[in-house]
Design a protein around this nucleic acid. Structure first.
Lengths: 348, 348
DNA sequence: TTGTAAGCGTTATCAT
DNA sequence: ATGATAACGCTTACAA
């Protein structure tokens, strides 16, 4: 096999010179450089990545950790598959990284056991930094990694200026609070007063922040928050379906639902329709995320669009900059926007 | 930083013994093993991946190359994002690999320049094998890699027993031919005789094979193939839209369309509806792939479902087995199945 | 500008 | 069962 010694021999120079050429050092005569380059090309020589790393150069690999914890009883393999939400983010990370000459090692974590592997990837130097998405807010395992001094970008993490850990990493969030506020306000502007909210639970920051936005919008409009109209759920279709049924079985009337994400909205609409009601004629529904299926849905779903591509871009650029030692901790909040379709109507 | 020398020192043994423990060799006394293990755990020591590799052990990383060549004039970033088709495959590969203790380095290739990077990953030993998806049939660049003796799994590659290269790699295909046959036959059984086909072009194996299946089904039913009813396109929505318009502007009547994938079907249906026609009342449409949006589409799209998860599973297990030196070249054809929804009707 | 030699953290070979 | 030592292929002082 080809190695730098071989190349050096053929080119009639020393290994150090070959190394200099490869790393584009200036202290090489044009003549030698060209000669070496020619030999390299001719023999299709590519330096051994592990050897380079061992000898001291940073590796250009970032880890992308998609966390999708599954309750054991569910046991669904590939649940992430059901979540198109991550695709755009993931592919954007890969694209951006690729442009910056970085590679992306993607991990999908379903089990607590999988958490162990995360540390390994950092400790054994397989990656130079990591981007986390899907984890619960204020995750202890991840904090350990940050505390160890590894480069980390967190998506969907609440801002806690008092927590030293979070002053050593980078955070990228969608503007969940204002997005939820806007979604709720949109319903209010359509004359709705009894607006239910199906949440995404209480462990994800995004869900918690959307609840806040929902309440604030109600409050600002002088509408009292009705606890019976807030039902906790999870970011999957079936949970939305069950939550809507619970809403119907409750004692409070409602003419609109703000679902914490589109999957929940899909499930809720299914429950509404099963009851013989129509969306938006009888009940209006607005979602969050604007996943691809939403525009094909019947009725096309009104939703809050996240700029996932942009968020991925920020995350990737941050981590790379951080690896290359150029930047400091940062907090980024990326705006969301309303995508108006046909699932909300004016209350008669 | 912790390394094997440190661990050895603390445990009071030599580096070789530490290495033996890590690699689970049998020639270590239980006593020593436990002592070393304890020290390792206590100090959270993880061996340096590059060092291990350099010293001879295989690395457990496989490359996943998602090829999505973009015509320059289009210039859309993240086009793969528009193709949920890959998400299920990608996540399944990662899941399965993870179960086998392998990591996945994902590459998305848009440009010819990106092709260079592929070779690099193999040559510099970053990966021990690669899975390719989305490439054109009979891709020369990839053949070079196979010829060099690297482990490769190809998705969507035509079977060419006469080509030595393809006897050195593994191939995983969906049963496009029978799937297309079945889709067309489904339409024929619904009394359609004038069945158009919007193809996915002539460079992807899947598209070519679907054309074959379509023609054969017609033939078997005694229906003559009408070239005017076959229009080439691409696996994206807008191409389907344009193709359908071309069909309407042609001289041949048709009552049904077999679209080479669901995105094309979406585009075609849009064109049909813009013409004031209804699906399935006026024109029936069947797709292929059964992507997630299809069940939400209006009307819900009848389609041929690929077992992407299973294909990913086979691909991953094949590449791992091959890396670990256990298997030989293979060809796998995974069946597809009809998912009947509401986009096809019986011709009156 | 170029070459020499040490070192990166493992594993493998050979002794003991 | 354990330890010493030589690779593995590169980068990087240090010398020349």
């Amino acid at each position: 096999m080809m190695n730098s010694t071989e190349i050096a021999k053929i080119a009639g120079v020393s290994r150090s010179t070959v190394s200099r050429v490869i790393n584009n050092y200036s202290n090489v005569s044009e003549e030698t450089r060209e000669k070496v380059l020619r030999v390299i090309k001719e023999h299709e020589y590519v330096p051994h990545a592990s050897a380079r790393m061992l000898a001291g150069s940073q590796n250009k690999v970032i880890g992308l950790f998609i966390i999708d914890l599954i309750h054991e009883e569910v046991g669904l393999k590939n649940r992430i598959t059901k979540s198109p939400y991550y695709l755009e983010f993931t592919s954007s990370v890969i694209e951006t990284a690729s442009e910056m000459d970085y590679l992306v090692l993607v991990h999908i974590i379903h089990s607590v056991a999988g958490y162990e592997k995360i540390k390994e990837s950092f400790y054994n130097k397989t990656i130079s930094g990591g981007i986390f998405i899907g984890q619960n807010d204020d995750d202890e395992s991840i904090k350990t990694i940050i505390d160890r001094g590894y480069k980390v970008v967190l998506l969907d993490q609440s801002i806690r200026p008092e927590d030293a850990t979070y002053n050593q990493c980078m955070i990228v969030n969608a503007d969940n609070y204002n997005g939820a506020y806007c979604a709720t306000k949109y319903l209010i502007d359509k004359k709705h007063k009894q607006i239910a909210h199906i949440t995404g639970g209480t462990v994800k920051f995004s869900s918690k922040d959307r609840i806040r936005g929902y309440k604030k919008a109600l409050e600002d409009a002088g509408i009292e928050v009705n606890k019976n109209l807030i039902v906790n759920s999870e970011f999957v279709e079936n949970a939305g379906y069950e939550a809507a049924k619970k809403l119907f079985n409750g004692n409070s009337e409602f003419s609109a639902i703000f679902a914490s994400n589109d999957k929940i909205a899909f499930g809720a609409i299914k429950a509404i329709q099963e009851r013989g009601l129509k969306v938006p004629d009888d009940i209006s529904v607005i979602g969050f995320d604007d996943i691809e299926s939403s525009k094909y849905f019947n009725p096309p779903l009104t939703s809050m669009k996240m700029k996932l591509g942009e968020m991925a871009d920020i995350a990737t650029k941050s981590i790379v900059a951080s690896i290359e030692g150029e930047t400091k901790p940062s907090i980024n909040v990326v705006p969301v926007s309303l995508v108006e379709r046909e699932s909300c109507g004016i209350l008669q």
